[in-house]
Structure formats: C-alpha cells, structure tokens
Amino acid sequence: MATRSYTSRRELEQYSFHPALTLLVPLGAILLQVLVSKSFPRFALFDLPLIATIFFAVARRSPVAGTLTGAMIGLFQDALTNQPIGVNGMVKCFIGYVAASIGVKVDVENIGTRVLMNFAFSLLQSVLLYAIQRGLLGQSGYHLMWLHELIRAVANTVISLPVFLLLDRGKRMI
C-alpha cells in the first residue's frame, strides 16, 4: 500500500499559476508603475513589481523560481530606466530567493506575516539598492533617506495586502 507523508510546509502548500498569469501579473505591475506615475508622480513611491516578486516567490515556495522571477522582473524594470541593467535585477533576484526560502518555513497566508514580510523586504530592497549604488556603481552622492524609505515601506505594505488577496484567486494547488 502506497503511503504519502508530508515532511514540510513546502510540500503541504505549494502553488502554481497559469502561465498567462505568471507573465501578465509582473508585466501589469510594471505597466501600472510606468503609466500611473505619469499622472500621479507620487505613485513612484510604490513598487508593484517588488510586491509581485514577493507574492510569486512565497506562493511557489521554490527559491530557484523566486530567484529567476525576481531577476526577470528586475531586469525588465532596469531596461525602462537609465540605470545600468542589473541594479534592480540583482536586488529583486535576492529578495525572490529570500522570500521563497522564508515561504518554505513560515505560514505566509497569515495577514500579520504578510505585513511584516512586505515591510521588511521593502526596507531590504532600499538597503540593497543603496549598497549597489554606493559600492558597485560608485555613486558617492547617493544617500539612504531613512524617513523616505520607511514611508515607502509602509506604502508598499499597505498596497500589498489587497494585491495579495487579489492574486490569491489565481493560485492553483499542486
């Protein structure tokens, strides 16, 4: 008789997405960011591509998938800026990896966890961007404005909750 045992949260709750959704959600996030910021410049404070990266990473619970998804989203973002390509790619690839690794061990369906996770990853992104700009690109004038980054983290956290709830509908249990 065949027996099946669940050894980890990863095996218990691993989701997949329709390929179209996998493609369209990050693209939509980037497009919204590009288009809405034109009419509402303050919208650039949000980072919808970051939220998409975190969501897909924790839902799939696969660090490899999280790494690659983050890298793709970040590189696409970089291609639309005047920065060297790879700045956001590296940051989001790392965040995708860490988010997926956390998703394996922690219940990411919980709202409290989602709040903490989004807030922390937003701050982590700011710190990593600062490190890359100062360390790798030699931008000595680049400063980390803590208050601004805290506001950004709060804004990303607030907007991530409805976005996560919306994207939860597209999940498919493996």
């Binding site: 490899v64 790494t67 690659l68 890298a71 690839c93 790392f94």
Partner: peptide, 22 residues
C-alpha cells in the same frame, strides 16, 4: 545546494554585466 548555486550564478552574471556597463 541547487538553490544557492542558482542564486550565486544569477547574481554573478548580473554583477559582471553591471561591471561591463560601468
């Protein structure tokens, strides 16, 4: 160490690309 190797490879590739652009 598949996960770590993939992460390091992707990061390394991007770092090299970044260095070449700069």
């Amino acid at each position: 160490y598949k996960n770590g190797i993939v992460l390091i490879t992707v990061l390394l590739l991007q770092t090299i690309g970044l260095a070449m652009q700069v």
